[in-house]
Design a protein around this nucleic acid. Sequence first.
DNA 1: ATATTGTGTAAAATATACTTTACATTATGT
DNA 2: ACATAATGTAAAGTATATTTTACACAATAT
Lengths: 66, 66
Amino acid sequence: MKNNIRVERAILNISQAELAERVQVTRQTINAIELGKYSPSAVLAMKIARVFGKKVEEVFELEDTD
Amino acid sequence: MKNNIRVERAILNISQAELAERVQVTRQTINAIELGKYSPSAVLAMKIARVFGKKVEEVFELEDTD
DNA sequence: ATATTGTGTAAAATATACTTTACATTATGT
DNA sequence: ACATAATGTAAAGTATATTTTACACAATAT
């Protein structure tokens, strides 16, 4: 699963810590997801997309390996 | 997290077992998610929405408790 | 009436997401 | 140069998703 969290954060100009706070997870969780270390739950993916004013599919992309 | 999997399945006229097969999980997993026993991973949510030709947000809805 | 298909459920096991604490490194501001 | 903010990482623990096996019941078809 790929994602553009970094880009979307840059557009909003918010840190990983601030995004984490807005979606109620730890900064490490945002960091891990952003770096593709693991993929989030649907709930978290929807919350993140919502912060960015985007659809889930605009922030996250399925890969062939998913 | 709420969902309209049952309705979308009815529109496509496919069983839980067939949906499960199409998204590569077990029938029990589809059943549990459909009944709201737990919410899926983002990967699974995206796969399910894709089968229905819908966006994730059109199939799943965040609740206040999420 | 009987076979078959679809659905609900449950317990135990495994995999994965997420937290907590803590430290190291990189970038940015003054 | 120094302070501070932002990011990367790691290990251990907890929570949750998913699988496997198995059974019960309801609906549908023959």
